[in-house]
Design a protein around this nucleic acid. Structure first.
Length: 463
DNA sequence: TTCATGGTTGTTGGC
DNA sequence: CGCCAACAACCATGA
């Protein structure tokens, strides 16, 4: 009796610790590993050329690794809800497996595919392997709502025991391929997707599971570095990475967070080591934190309609917006929906972090870890010849120094769009007002008592 | 219900 | 250069 199962790759682009792939191999003697290039995606998401390259390299590597276990990757173009009915019929599919994905777009897409599968008598198995724990289980352990502080998450997780152990890679994943497989289902090149490879930057971090495991293994050798790792002491403006650079591999699932967790555990077990939140384990827990809150919060990537987000009357300034917009989502190799939204709320004191008067200075913060401004000299070549006294504030340099540096501010390089000191004050005031008015949103008695308690505090201060 | 506690990365300016 | 107080007074959690 021949049975055919599709394993649907989305994230989780790996063979190791992939319980849904294992389930497909177990359920069927013909396993079709499928990746769907969804035309919806490039139009509505900002994916830069380097991330496209990373994805395609990851798919190529996935195909290579599947070949080693007698299988192949099938890259199919189309919308999942149109592709699956065709594939179900074409291959006579009885099982569909995939890794659970907690992002709202994925949740609604997957529930539609579940329905379609049911209509075609296809049995669906989905498994958690993108996060350390099942986010829904964490949420229900916390009384049905996501923990809103890191400490609370730690408390909840510690009541759940250790994360599930990673499962082995499949040793055999028999696939009946067709002779024209490469032509019909091969991994496309950048050109075939209408992209220009010459627009790519240097290839510093190749995509793929093999590279992810290599990078993790080489990092895990540096035991004292791992044991003394403290995130706040890393250097965001260093020219060499001062962190692991495993995040793009975790984002695409080239690397299992659970495998990484247990590899770190092994090192930790033999020596004194740092702890969450600053340790490397702590970094995996931050990821878990934002994934968990994001899975439980409506409009997590927006302010409006987002119950955890402070409602702040931001200015709408198209000019400023243009200078910043989309940059992170487009250019980051590791752009990750839950993590980006969570971190932006953190940094803007909109949620999770509330001490809004601690404002980063674009001048002082950079100086802390890069006094000479080498990061700016590399990435903003117009400013590269400024003396270090002015590298963070080139507009303050006397005209003759600007001339000597070959860059007149306002002519060869734009003037600052805001005065930081003024804008800092203005925004602290705006935040104070927003916090205050959010506090009194209950209205009535509550409004009165809150207002009077603020008054009292002010009085005390004066005395 | 009330209140203390702690919070992964702030900046400035004086000593 | 390192240390420390002032800045203004936040929130979620848990006792």
């Amino acid at each position: 009796m021949k049975t055919c199962a599709i394993h649907w790759f989305r994230k989780g682009l790996r063979l190791h610790d992939n319980p849904a792939l294992l389930a497909a191999c177990k359920a069927a003697d013909d396993v079709k590993p499928v990746f769907i290039l969804d035309p919806w995606f490039p139009k509505n998401a900002n994916v830069g050329i380097n991330r496209w390259r990373f994805l395609l390299q990851t798919l190529q590597n996935l195909d290579d690794n599947l070949k080693k276990v007698n299988s192949r990757l099938y890259v199919v173009k189309g919308k999942p809800n149109e592709v699956f009915p065709k594939l179900f019929k074409h291959w006579g599919v009885s099982h569909l497996t995939f890794e659970e994905d907690t992002e709202p777009y994925a949740v609604s897409r997957d529930s539609e595919i579940q329905k379609i599968a049911k209509e075609h008598n296809v049995e669906v198995t989905s498994c958690v392997s993108h996060t350390l724990f099942d986010t829904q289980r964490t949420i229900s352990k916390n009384g049905g709502k996501a923990p809103l502080t890191y400490q609370r998450l730690q408390t909840v997780l510690s009541s759940m025991g250790s994360p599930p152990k990673p499962v082995e890679s499949p040793t055999k994943c028999q696939t009946k391929t067709e002779p024209d497989h490469d032509k019909k289902y091969g991994v496309p090149s950048l050109e075939e997707l209408g992209k220009s490879p010459e627009d790519c930057g240097p290839l510093l971090f190749p995509g793929g599971e093999t590279e992810a495991l290599r990078r993790m293994e080489s990092m895990i050798q540096k035991k004292s570095w791992i044991c003394s790792f403290e995130k706040p002491k890393t250097e965001p403006n260093s020219l060499e990475p001062s962190t692991t650079v495993l995040s793009p591999y975790l984002k695409f699932g080239c690397l299992s967070p659970r495998l990484f967790y247990y590899k770190l555990q092994e090192v930790y077990s033999k020596a004194k080591h740092t702890s969450p939140p600053v340790s490397l384990h702590g970094q995996l827990l931050w990821r878990e934190f934002f994934y968990t809150v994001a899975a439980d919060t409506a409009n997590f990537d927006k302010m409006e309609g987002n119950p955890v987000c402070k409602q702040i009357p931001w200015d709408i300034n198209e000019e400023y917006l243009k200078a910043w917009k989309e940059v992170f989502e487009e250019y980051l190799l590791d752009a990750d929906w839950s993590l980006n939204a969570g971190n932006w709320m953190w940094l803007s004191a909109s949620a999770f972090f509330h001490q809004y008067f601690r404002v980063y200075s674009p001048i002082e913060f950079g100086k802390k870890t890069d006094k000479d401004g080498n990061y700016i000299r590399k990435y903003v070549p117009q400013l590269s010849k400024f003396p270090k006294a002015f590298i963070y504030e080139p507009w303050k340099a006397p005209l003759d120094i600007q001339k000597k540096a070959g860059c007149i501010i306002g002519k060869d390089y734009p003037k600052a769009i805001v005065n930081h000191d003024q804008m800092r004050k203005k925004n602290i005031e705006r935040m104070a007002n927003a916090y205050n008015s959010n506090k009194t949103d209950g209205g009535g008695e509550k409004r009165k008592s809150e207002a009077s308690s603020v008054q009292k505090k002010k009085k005390r201060k004066v005395e």
